[in-house]
Amino acid sequence: MAKLSLTKAAARARRILLLALLGGGAAVASIETAAAQSPADVVVLAGPCASCHGPDGRSPGPIASIAGRPQTVLLEQLKAFKSDNPPPGTTVMSRLAKGYTDEQLAALATHFSKISATAPAADAAKKKGK
């Protein structure tokens, strides 16, 4: 099982690299769209995510944590939710994701990918060896 998912991850990484190489034009376009949103806009856009996924996207419960996961993984998942064929087991996210533009989903994925998966207090506790 582990071997299989590693292979899958490698294939995905190759695909992303290829997209990045081919996608020079697209990347410029998306940077331009992102520029229309100020950092404060993106923080506000991401505000409601915390109400289910926890403060800063670190979940205290059964709902998935989204902080610190790779941007490409988050965006792929959000786009899958938004599509007409959401992944099996999807409940509310297929309804919520449809309310956002692709640019907004990309901004959200970038925002949460840049947040550390562990809270600052937890980091400090770990360093103390607790």
Binding site: A50, S51, C52, H53, G54, P55, S59, P60, G61, P62, I63, G89, T91, V92
Partner: peptide, 23 residues
Amino acid sequence: KLEAEYGVGWYNAITQDTWGSRP
């Protein structure tokens, strides 16, 4: 059943986001 579980997940997340509570 999933939405019943996510309801609890929502409550735990939003009360932490609002008051800093931990279940």
